[in-house]
Design a protein around this nucleic acid. Structure first.
Lengths: 333, 333
DNA sequence: ATGAAAGCGCTAACAA
DNA sequence: TTGTTAGCGCTTTCAT
């Protein structure tokens, strides 16, 4: 591998000049610049970013820590981050924490060791410890879920509002025994979506029944199991609000397996859109989130924080949108 | 940030000793090791990987270059890579080329600059140029698609066989005018899957008609447009084989929009499974691929090549599996 | 078993 | 504008 010194020798200039040409900051005599360029291509020189990063004491890398790479919600969000990041000269690296606190802290340590310029994290838990990053002065933005210990730039949707709207919609369609399958207690989204559900139950005058509420793991199997448990109760629910996309799918599969019809026997609303929702039968009523925009906002916050480390933390809250489809299509009471 | 020298000073030993303790290779006096460890935690020392990688002239990073991060086929494959990589001490970094040759070559350059220990690539084209990596001695493995210019370790499925089986299945179910929506000509998978389709058409004695073959872009919109074009022909097909998951979805949506019934009016088989296939109505007959295994195999090949750079290139071909569901469910002729 | 010293390839001060 | 020099933080000879 050719180094800058090889290029310098070949072009008959100093290493500093080669560096100047390559980085295009300072002005260099055009004739020299040309000689450097041709030496670069003659030798097939390629910059060693590792050395560069060490010397500059910074990288142009962003890490995105998400909890499930197979969940379309996260991949779409990553696209938003990527587009902004690339346009500002950053490379975006994906890390899959798998809802696993251990993996998460390993990745946080790695981000530190690798001197990431910025980190966007969807924490596995409200109490995830990002303090090593914060203390080291790394720019951090939380997305989708909040962190309780520290005040960070954060991008969220109106989880309570979205959940309330979804639940109200079920009530308006005449469903009376509405269940809620929410996520793990350790995540802010699960808590807030449950709260929105509860608010709607109260507002519509339906009886709140604790046995209608289940906490699952935001995964398909968890949604399936929670639905099964709800159906095994003495009085089964006639509708269910599921707090994320995968659990909705699980719940639906359970209903199919039990021979129950949606929306006639049971109405279903999910949080998060599902790709190819048009193909599912019945098509699914969902609380849609602006995933791409969320990623984009987070990236913009990160970029801003890198530029101005001391600025106060911002919280961006985006709106959800209820997409009414067939799974709640029962005539109003 | 504390450095190794700070730790050394604090523990009253040399930097070399700290390094030895931290890397656990050579033997160090247990008493010293303890002093080093406590100095490490006292100072909150964290390794600087950038410096380490520069000095060691190698990293423990793998890059995976995939063409669509939102395609579940690729994300599932990445899981396989990740699991093997992590178990061997590598961090896996994802790069999204977006079927864009420019992005792809930028990422290849970045892999080189960042001194990646290995690269797993699903090339955007048969003629994608990975030679910079190969020449620099970086371990490279191709996955899902072949490269024509160079001989690399490669993980594929039996694309021709899978496509032939799918097409034969349609013929056996009594479909007579079977169309094929395949991918871009520049990708080996598109070519091979088309070839398998053609082989089956010939073998079953159906008439081969060029107007039944369409090349699209492996995306949903492309599949939709190709299906629309097929339906606009004078004689419309009574079945379609689509060469990947997203195009299958597009084709199906087109059929729905045109008011055609699957499988009665048109039979459909897709290549690649589709998540939540059970929810789609009709459920989809697909050529399933062992995605996780593919990722795992690629990772094992990569690991082997890093260990033994000179060894001859291996090609792993995994089998596909036809999953017969409702979308081809027409009684045999 | 331990320490001293060199240097990975680059960029940023500083001098000229 | 250009060149000289030092050093980012680490690992690895080589001596001891």
């Amino acid at each position: 591998m050719a180094t800058i010194h090889d290029v310098a020798r070949h072009a008959g200039v100093s290493a500093a000049t080669v560096s100047r040409v390559l980085n295009g900051r300072e002005t260099v005599d055009p004739a020299l610049a040309v000689r450097v360029q041709s030496a670069v291509s003659a030798l097939g020189y390629r910059r060693n970013s590792v050395a560069r990063n060490l010397r500059r004491r910074q990288t142009t890398l962003w890490a995105v820590l998400i909890s499930d790479i197979e969940n379309p919600f996260f991949t779409s969000l990553v696209r938003g981050v990527e587009d902004v990041g690339r346009s500002e000269g950053y490379s975006v690296v994906l890390c899959n924490t798998d809802e696993d606190t251990t993996k998460e802290s390993e990745y946080i340590a790695a981000c530190l060791a690798d001197k990431m310029a910025g980190v966007i994290i969807s924490p596995t838990s409200d109490t995830s410890d990002v303090s090593p990053l914060v203390e080291a002065g790394t720019a951090v933005v939380a997305i989708d879920r909040e962190l309780s210990q520290v005040t960070l730039d954060t991008v969220l949707v109106d989880n309570e509002g979205g959940a309330e709207q979804a639940t109200r919609h079920l009530a308006e369609r005449g469903y009376r025994r509405i269940a809620c399958i929410t996520g793990p207690r350790r995540t802010s989204t699960a808590i807030r979506r449950l709260r929105g559900y509860q608010r709607a139950i109260k507002a519509t005058g339906l009886t709140a029944d604790k046995s209608l509420i289940r906490h699952a793991d935001f995964r398909e199997a968890g949604g399936y199991a929670a639905m099964a448990a709800l159906l095994d109760e003495d009085v089964r629910p006639d509708a269910v609000f599921a707090a994320n996309n995968l659990m909705t799918v699980g719940a639906l599969e359970c209903l199919v397996d039990r021979g129950l019809t949606v929306p006639d026997d049971v109405g279903v609303v999910g949080f998060d859109d599902i790709p190819w929702a048009r193909l599912a039968r019945p098509s699914l009523t969902t609380v849609g989130q602006p995933t791409y925009e969320m990623g984009k906002s987070a990236a913009q916050l990160l970029s801003g924080r890198i530029a101005t480390p001391g600025r106060p933390a911002t919280r961006v809250t985006l709106q959800t949108e209820l997409h009414i489809r067939e799974s709640t299509n029962r005539p109003p009471a």
